[in-house]
């Protein structure tokens, strides 16, 4: 990727962050939680794909990393669920 490309990505990330912070000031209503989570995931994936080059690199790297990531999400969400975390 070119320097320009990186700067564009960074600008998008900055814009999303601004949007995230705005949820603190503006009432998003029922969209509050889902929109925050979606923005978080977008930022995460963008950094991983572009800044960490995972999108352009060998697929094996993606496999190794995302295995860890999804395993973590899976076991910890399950564990929190047994604490009735999501029902509170």
């Amino acid at each position: 990727m070119s320097t320009r490309g990186y700067i564009v990505i960074a600008l998008i990330l900055a814009a999303i962050t601004a949007l995230e912070v705005s949820t603190y000031y503006v009432d998003f209503g029922p969209l509050f939680l889902p929109s925050l989570l979606i923005m978080m995931v977008i930022k995460f994936v963008m950094v991983v794909s572009y800044f960490m080059h995972l999108k352009f690199d060998n697929k094996l790297f993606s496999w190794l990393f995302y295995t860890g990531l999804f395993l973590a999400v899976g076991v910890y969400i399950t564990a929190l669920a047994t604490f009735q975390f999501f029902l509170r």
């Binding site: 990393f65 860890g68 395993l71 973590a72 910890y76 929190l80 975390f85």
Partner: peptide
Amino acid sequence: FLGSECLLFGGLISTYML
């Protein structure tokens, strides 16, 4: 290593969330 770190921070974040 980074894949492994996901489980480390996952545990810490879950503890905080709880």
